[in-house]
C-alpha cells in the first residue's frame, strides 16, 4: 500500500462467478475498489453482498474469475500466504463477532497478542489508543454481553484496526441501530477511513447512510453489477435499477412478486381441486 502505484485499484475483481448449489450468486462481476476511498456495495437482500466480502477475504473460493487485493491474486494463495494477506485486512462482522469469553480490552488485544511479540505494556498503550478512537476507553473492562449492539460494533471496529490494516470491510454495519449509534457509526467509518488512510468497503442496504459516506456505490442485483458511480450520479442516472433501489420503490426491475405462474390460472387450479 506504500508503493507509488496509487492509481491502480486496491481490489480488482474481474469476471467473478460464484454459485451456491445450483443457484448462481455472482455471474461475471467486474469491480474496482479505489485506494483511500469508501466504496459501498448495495443491493437487495439475498444478492450475496456478504458472500462478496468472504470472497475478497479468501474464506471461500470463486467458481471462475480473479480477485486481486493489492496486486495479489487471492484465489490462488496458499493458506499461509492468505493468512499473511489477511493480517492487512480488517473485517467487521454484522454483529461484531466479539469473542464472548474475553472482555473488551482482551478482544482488541487478541489479534496483537496472536501475531506479535509485543510486551504487555506496549499492548496496553496500543489498545488504549484504539479504544480512544472509537470512544470506548471507559468500557475496557466490560464483557461483550454487557455492551449494546452499537457499542459492540465499535469495539469490533477497534479490533479490526488493531493491526493497522490497509483496508477494512464492513458487513451491514447499520442494521438494527438506533439513530444515535447509527450517526456514530457513520461518522466513525468516514473518520477512520480518512485519518488512518484506509480503504473501506461497506456492504449495506441502508441507502441513506451508505450513500452519505461513500465515494463510489456499486449496485448489485441478480448476480450482476447493475449500476455504479457516485451516489449523486446514481440518483440522477436514468437506470431503472438505480431508480428503484435508490428511491426504494416496491416494484420495478426487482419485481414485487416472487416468480410464479399466472395469478388467474393459480386461482382456477385451486378451484378445480
Amino acid at each position: 500500500m506504500t508503493d507509488t502505484s496509487t492509481t491502480t485499484p486496491l481490489v480488482e475483481i474481474r469476471n467473478l462467478s460464484f454459485a451456491r448449489g445450483d443457484r448462481m450468486i455472482f455471474d461475471g462481476i467486474d469491480m474496482d475498489i479505489e485506494r483511500g476511498k469508501v466504496t459501498a456495495i448495495m443491493g437487495p437482500s439475498g444478492t450475496g453482498k456478504t458472500t462478496l466480502l468472504r470472497l475478497i477475504g479468501g474464506q471461500i473460493k470463486p467458481l471462475t474469475g480473479s480477485i486481486k487485493v493489492d496486486g495479489i491474486e487471492v484465489t490462488k494463495l496458499s493458506r499461509s500466504a492468505l493468512f499473511q494477506l489477511r493480517k492487512r485486512m480488517g473485517m467487521l462482522f454484522q454483529n461484531g463477532a466479539l469473542l464472548t469469553d474475553m472482555n473488551v480490552f482482551d478482544n482488541i488485544a487478541f489479534p496483537i497478542r496472536e501475531h506479535t511479540q509485543l510486551s504487555e505494556k506496549m499492548i496496553r498503550t496500543l489498545v488504549t489508543m484504539k479504544l480512544q478512537v472509537v470512544g470506548l476507553r471507559g468500557a475496557r473492562n466490560l464483557m461483550p454481553s454487557e455492551l449494546s449492539g452499537g457499542m459492540a460494533r465499535r469495539v469490533a471496529m477497534a479490533r479490526a484496526i488493531a493491526l493497522d490494516p490497509m483496508m477494512i470491510m464492513y458487513d451491514e454495519p447499520f442494521t438494527g441501530q438506533d439513530p444515535i449509534s447509527l450517526g456514530v457509526l457513520v461518522r466513525l467509518i468516514r473518520e477512520l477511513n480518512d485519518t488512518l488512510g484506509l480503504t473501506s468497503i461497506v456492504v449495506s442496504h441502508d441507502i441513506k447512510e451508505a450513500s452519505s459516506i461513500s465515494d463510489t456505490i456499486y449496485l448489485l442485483s441478480g448476480g450482476k453489477v447493475v449500476a455504479h458511480g457516485s451516489s449523486k450520479a446514481l440518483h440522477e442516472s436514468g437506470s431503472e435499477w438505480a431508480k428503484q433501489f435508490m428511491n426504494g420503490l416496491p416494484d420495478g426491475p426487482v419485481p414485487f412478486h416472487y416468480p410464479a405462474i399466472d395469478y388467474a390460472e393459480d386461482l382456477l387450479a385451486a378451484g378445480n381441486k
Partner: peptide, 22 residues
C-alpha cells in the same frame, strides 16, 4: 457451536488466526 453461529470463528479466520488451532 455458538462461537460459529455468532461468527466468532469466521472473525478469527479473518484476523489470520486459525480457529481450529486457537
Amino acid at each position: 457451536g455458538l462461537m460459529k453461529a455468532t461468527e466468532q470463528l469466521s472473525a478469527m479466520e479473518m484476523m489470520a488466526i486459525d480457529p481450529i488451532r486457537r
